[in-house]
Design a protein around this nucleic acid. Structure first.
Lengths: 344, 344
DNA sequence: CTGAAAGCGCTTACAG
DNA sequence: CTGAAAGCGCTTACAG
């Protein structure tokens, strides 16, 4: 494999000059630079990332940690961030926790990320106090997306989950519903997406604002995915006196609810209204009403917040101070899964 | 940051011994090893990946290239492969082409992968002759999943797309359908998932075997996703004399078809039957009949084929020769979107 | 603007 | 089983 010495020899300059020319540093004369580029081209030279990193101290790599890449929100966020990172010349190391506590430990503790990446993006990763400490000890720039716990010095990009949930439940209330169930993730699951706690809170706030008392029998926890939505809804129906509406903490759970309701012979929205949060790619196909959240925008913005300082760019004043949260807007999207409650 | 010299000093051995002990090489006495481990533990030592790679020549990293991580099949494959890689101690560099030819060039040509990874996994990445040459020049082990073009020396994991499509169309024929449309990806798109060519072939073979001539007016190409399925179906309906059944080249296109049919006031399956290929996570929710393909298994198996040789493990005889394809089974799943053609 | 030299932090023959 | 030493291939002060 050709190395920097070969290029230096062919171009008739020192390796230091080759290094500078190839990286586009300004302290190289135009004539020298073009000679170096020609030599590198001719020899098909590519720098050795390992050598460059060891000598230079920067890895040109960022770590992205997600709970499950197969879930809609995380896939979209990663895609958007990946595009931004690669345009900026950074590589992306993917860590998919896959619901295994052990994986989270390995990534967050074990100094695994140490010297391996220049920056870290944590997507909806639940953090204990010890995790935050370990992360801070890494002394790397980072950003969190949709995270309940924040890391000192790291900005956070998210939506207002409480408000989004309030809007969802209020939509159902406005349609005349009173028996409104809520299905969401399991708070006992250490790896659970923490946003669901806020979503429950928003739901209950909306109920109370309408003069209703949250009914524990209408609140079921399960896993934060399609199967969880199905199980939670089945449980709901098993309890008897079914709700006239279900607010699912995410669209995937809402889809599971749709399945369970259909299997139980209940029609949506005639018998039961259903609404979720996300605006999943398939929500339109299913006619699912939802609170849309900007996933692409969250991924892109978080990537930018992470990289701009590394690239020496200044940030906008309103998001430039670390620890600051950027809250993006959500939007009620009414489709066919929600309808007025039947008079009774 | 503590380095290997610090550990060596504390343990009272040479850096060479620390290196050996930490990597678990057998040529270290038990007593020495535990002394080294204790010292490393005490100092919170973590090896510098860059230094280790430069000196050792191995990166402990594999590149995974996918067209779009947000599409069902690719997300599932990456998740399965990621799990396998991380268990084996390898990091995963994700390259999401995102439909941009430019991205493919950057990843496959520009020697970008050179010295950056130990192995490459290409998922449904269309390869031109020049790409294959560039890849071969990298001289790295690799594996392809669901790829039309193979790379010399790289095994390939896939399903039999022709057979899967044949089964889908035969299912429709068995139900009495004769006007069976096919919607699939755009062959002019350089970045297109190449499997759709095989799927069209299987479709046409099944028609001919039933004594039918493929009708060009019932064959529409679009993008290989939900929106593409919708557009293709709208085009189909615009042509007049609609088909009684649609075979979509993948479930996401089939879902788009469902939307278009509903919007056109056609009922599924009463007016039009629809079948896809995949068994997407939401196909059950939508009641979509399909040909299920094992995505997790393909990702896991491909990762194994890639890593086993690197880890010095022997492969099973039937898949051990490079260039060999491993073909996994598919299975017809009948749900509610396909029904007998109405007598007329 | 350019070069000589040191150094980044490991691993690997080689020798014992 | 262990160590001294060379070397992996770059980048970075430092000097000019």
């Amino acid at each position: 494999m050709t190395k920097i010495d070969d290029v230096a020899r062919l171009a008739g300059v020192s390796t230091a000059t080759v290094s500078r020319a190839l990286r586009g540093l300004p302290t190289v004369s135009a004539a020298t630079r073009s000679r170096v580029l020609a030599a590198a081209e001719q020899l098909q030279y590519a720098v050795s990332p390992s050598a460059s990193r060891l000598a230079g101290g920067r890895t040109g790599t960022v770590a992205v940690v997600v709970p499950r890449i197969t879930r809609w929100f995380f896939g979209v966020v990663v895609e958007a961030a990946e595009d931004f990172f690669h345009r900026a010349g950074y590589d992306l190391l993917l860590y998919n926790l896959g619901g295994r506590e052990q994986n989270r430990q390995r990534v967050l503790y074990a100094t695994h990320l140490h010297k391996r990446v220049d920056a870290i993006m944590l997507v909806a990763t639940p953090l204990r106090a010890t995790d935050v400490t370990a992360l801070a000890a890494l002394d790397l720039p980072g950003v969190t997306i949709s995270s309940g716990t924040t890391v000192p010095g790291w900005p956070c990009v998210r939506i207002d989950d409480v408000a989004a949930a309030r809007t969802a439940t209020r939509h159902l209330l406005d349609l005349g519903h009173r028996r409104i169930a809520h299905i969401s993730g399991d708070p006992d699951d250490e790896l659970a997406f923490s946003a669901h706690l806020d979503r429950r809170r928003g739901h209950q706030e909306a109920l109370r604002a309408a003069g209703l008392q949250p009914d524990p029998s209408l609140d079921v926890e399960s896993s934060f995915d399609i199967a969880g939505g199905t199980r939670a809804t089945e449980e709901l129906l098993r309890r008897g006196d079914p709700p006239t509406a279900i607010f699912a903490a995410c669209d995937e759970m809402a889809m599971g609810a749709l399945t369970a309701l259909r299997d139980a012979g209940l029609r949506v929205p005639q018998d039961v209204s259903v609404i979720g949060i996300d605006d999943h790619a398939l929500s339109g196909v299913l006619g699912l009403s939802t609170i849309a959240q900007p996933a692409v925008e969250q991924g892109r913005l978080a990537a930018q917040l992470l990289l701009d300082p590394l690239c020496g760019r200044a940030l906008d004043a309103d998001v430039s101070k670390p620890d600051s949260s950027v809250i993006l807007d959500t939007r009620l999207v009414v489709r066919d899964s929600t309808a007025p409650a039947r008079a009774n």
